[in-house]
Design a protein around this nucleic acid. Structure first.
Lengths: 138, 138
DNA sequence: TAATTGTCCTAGTGTACATAGGACAATAAA
DNA sequence: TTTATTGTCCTATGTACACTAGGACAATTA
């Protein structure tokens, strides 16, 4: 769990942390019962205030993805992965609706939109396969 | 050009105004040379401060969609519709990329994503045809 | 017992958004 | 020329949010 905070990113720091954890749960890097790094550890590693991390962990708890235990730490809940899948599903629907609306306003045929999706998917596929081959940034 | 401001919408007021004008240009409701309502008119109609509307018009000018002329008003620029098409194109690409990434993280096959897009498009189609038939909110 | 860990608290800083209204220059209309 | 309109600029105020800073405490663990 290395969390990389981008200060130039307009997204609030605490939400960047939330996203990083959510992604780890989505990919299976974090599984139910797994312990997250402590608030103070993340604060030091990501170079932010511990109150900011605390806010992130609280938000994750509200999302039902983790539970915080004073004195012991923060752990992925049993329902975490399932909840996260549901969250992504809603997000996908939102994005699809907005995309379709934009395409409509731009006088774009649905077929054209599909093509763009297809190309984007292929790009993502290539990127991840390149990473798998060890083509990392140098 | 009636602009409806939703105070419960987290999107800043000035951007809601920008979006309304952009949409009017995208649909052809506003064409090059057309005069927008004056800043003070919009301020009264949308019940916001004139400085807020001024900010919107400045933003629209920065986007190259309109030009402001002290003493005469605000007008859609010749390149407005073209610029707006380009803006939408970029936005569509962004949305497509994010959608594909989300689908990937949710372990969703591209075909499933396509299906969701298709359904969303059909929903939009039905809504607009209902509006055309006069099925407005009562 | 001592250290760790999440939690709660107050306080202060910076930024974005919106309001309010005065003042002015460019333009248009009378 | 005069008057009204219109965009522009200015200062000031208030609110909300994000973030930092650090003290203090309770629950848990070692």
């Amino acid at each position: 769990m290395f969390i990389d905070i981008d200060l130039s990113n307009p997204k609030p720091t605490y939400l960047q942390i939330v996203d990083a954890v959510r992604r780890a749960i989505a990919t299976g890097a974090l599984e139910p019962g797994d312990k997250l790094p402590t608030i103070r550890e993340v604060a030091i590693q990501a170079r932010v205030n511990r109150n900011t991390v605390s806010r992130s962990y609280l938000e994750l708890e509200h999302l039902g993805l983790v539970y915080n235990r004073q004195g012991s730490g923060c752990f992925v809940s049993d329902e975490g992965p399932q909840r996260e899948r549901e969250n992504r599903g809603s997000r996908i629907q939102e994005l699809a609706d907005e995309l379709v609306l934009e395409a409509h306003l731009a006088d774009q045929a649905v077929e054209e939109t599909m093509k763009i999706i297809q190309q984007s998917a292929e790009r993502l596929q290539n990127e991840s396969s390149n990473r798998a081959k060890g083509h990392t940034n140098e």
